[in-house]
Computed example of a mutant assay.
Amino acid sequence: MSLQSVKDFFSTHAPDLSVIETEQSSATVTLAAQAHGVDPDQIAKTICLRAGDEVILLVASGTSRLDNRKFRDRFGAKPRMLGAEDVVAQTSHPVGGVCPFGLPQPLAVYLDDSLRRHAEVVPAAGAINAAVRIAPDRMAMLVSGTWVDVCQPPASEPVQL
């Protein structure tokens, strides 16, 4: 049902985009990058987190790491990852296929600025072997997402103090 809810979402909101299903698993950043022939940083990973009492989705580039201090400064709470069962209950998507599309109920979606390094990113699409190619700004528009800066900069970027 999860994959179908994502296909239905795109059919209604972005019929020009299609879900790409692969034979091999794309459940991890490395596997997804291999399956779709992109750099791992172009994979848009979606993390289901609890910020205080609120459950949110954070979409970030595949090689980005959450910065706990930036997160706490932005959301006023320490990030808490949800367990696999809670992720499915909140999103209907299995871990490895979590995305901000086709959700059974509204969740706040935040997109990390790390996604803006790419003209096109590849988020999962509701299954461990499904994805979509999309511009980050279009993804933000489709899911009513809010841009945030809560990930650590890549090792090649200087850290601002």
Rank of each mutant, 00 (worst) to 15 (best):
T12M: 07
H13I: 00
P15K: 04
P15L: 02
P15S: 08
L17H: 15
L17G: 11
L17T: 10
V19C: 08
V19A: 04
I20L: 12
E21G: 06
E23V: 14
Q24T: 13
S26C: 14
T28A: 03
T28C: 05
T30K: 15
L31G: 09
A32C: 05
A35E: 10
V38F: 02
P40K: 13
D41H: 14
I43M: 06
I43S: 05
C48L: 12
L49Q: 03
V55N: 11
I56K: 01
I56M: 07
L57C: 06
L58H: 05
G62T: 06
G62M: 02
R65D: 09
L66P: 05
N68R: 14
N68A: 13
R69F: 08
K70F: 05
D73K: 10
A77W: 08
A77C: 10
G83M: 12
E85C: 00
E85Q: 14
D86G: 07
V87N: 06
V87K: 00
S92T: 15
V98W: 01
P100G: 08
G102H: 12
L103N: 01
P104C: 09
P104F: 11
Q105G: 12
Q105E: 14
A108I: 04
A108M: 08
V109M: 05
Y110T: 06
Y110P: 07
D112G: 05
S114H: 05
V121N: 03
V122E: 00
A124M: 04
A125Y: 02
A125N: 03
A127R: 02
I128S: 06
I128G: 01
A130Y: 04
V132Q: 13
V132D: 12
R133W: 14
R133I: 14
A135M: 03
D137T: 10
R138S: 00
A140G: 03
M141G: 13
L142T: 02
L142W: 01
V143T: 14
V148A: 02
C151F: 03
A155C: 13
